[in-house]
Amino acid sequence: MSLYYTCRHCGVCLGMLPKQSVKIEQLGFELLNSQEYQEMITTDPLGNIHVTIVCDDCESALRSNPNLHGMDYIIQ
C-alpha cells in the first residue's frame, strides 16, 4: 500500500509515500470525523490510499477569491 496526496482542486500530485515507509497508525486519520474521512480518503483496487487535500496555490486562490469555494476545480 502506497499513499498518494493530491490537490482536490487542481489535481496536482503533491506527494507519495511508498508502502515500506507508511504506517497508517502514524498518519492521524483517526482524528477525522466520518464525513471528513469519506470526503478526503479513498482506496484503490490495489490497496493504495489516496488523500485529497488543498495545495498552497489553490489555498491562496481561495483566500483571495472567496467566491471560488463552491467550485470543485478552481484552476483549469
Rank of each mutant, 00 (worst) to 15 (best):
Leu68Gly: 05
Gln38Trp: 01
Asp56Tyr: 01
Ile75Pro: 00
Leu32Phe: 11
Gly28Lys: 02
Lys23Val: 09
Leu68Trp: 11
Gln35Phe: 04
Leu17Arg: 13
Ser60Pro: 00
Thr52Leu: 07
Pro18Asp: 12
Pro66Val: 11
Ala61Ile: 02
Ile41Tyr: 03
Tyr37Asn: 12
Asn65Glu: 04
Gly47Tyr: 06
Met71Ser: 12
Leu17Val: 09
Tyr37Gly: 04
Gln35Leu: 13
Leu62Asn: 11
Pro45Met: 01
Leu3Met: 07
Ala61Trp: 03
Asn67Trp: 15
Leu31Ile: 01
Val54His: 06
Asn33Glu: 06
Asn67Ile: 15
Cys7Lys: 10
Asp56Glu: 15
Thr42Gln: 07
Ile74Pro: 07
Glu25Ile: 10
Lys23Asn: 13
Asp44Gln: 02
Glu59Lys: 05
Val22Ser: 04
Asn65Tyr: 05
His9Asn: 13
Gly47Ile: 06
His9Cys: 07
Glu25Leu: 08
Tyr37Lys: 14
Ile41Trp: 06
Gly15Gln: 13
Ile75Met: 14
Ile53Ala: 11
Gly11Pro: 02
Leu3Lys: 07
Tyr37Cys: 08
Gly15Phe: 14
Arg8Gly: 15
Asp44Gly: 04
Lys23Ser: 08
Leu32Asn: 05
Ile41Thr: 05
Asp56Val: 04
Ile41Lys: 04
Cys58Phe: 01
Ile41Met: 08
Gly28Thr: 03
Gln38Tyr: 07
Gly47Gln: 09
Ser2Pro: 00
Ser60His: 00
Leu3Trp: 07
Asn33Leu: 01
Asp56Thr: 11
Ser64Asn: 14
Met40Val: 00
Met1His: 09
Gly47Met: 09
His69Phe: 12
Met16Gly: 03
Glu25Gln: 11
Gly47Asn: 07
Gln35Tyr: 03
Met40Glu: 03
Asn33Ser: 09
Ser60Trp: 00
Asp72Leu: 11
Tyr73Leu: 05
Gly47Thr: 06
Gln38Pro: 01
Glu30Gly: 10
Ser60Asp: 01
Phe29Ala: 02
Met40Arg: 06
Gly70Tyr: 12
Ala61Pro: 03
Arg63Pro: 04
Leu27Asn: 03
Tyr73Trp: 06
Pro45Arg: 06
Cys13Asp: 13
Cys13Trp: 09
Thr6Met: 10
Asp72Val: 10
Thr52Pro: 06
Val22Trp: 07
Cys10Gln: 12
Ile75Trp: 10
Asn65Lys: 07
Gly70Ala: 09
Cys58Gln: 02
Ser2Cys: 05
Lys23Leu: 08
Gly11Met: 10
Cys10Ala: 14
Leu31Asn: 12
Ile53Asn: 10
Tyr73Ser: 13
Glu36Val: 00
Ser2Ile: 03
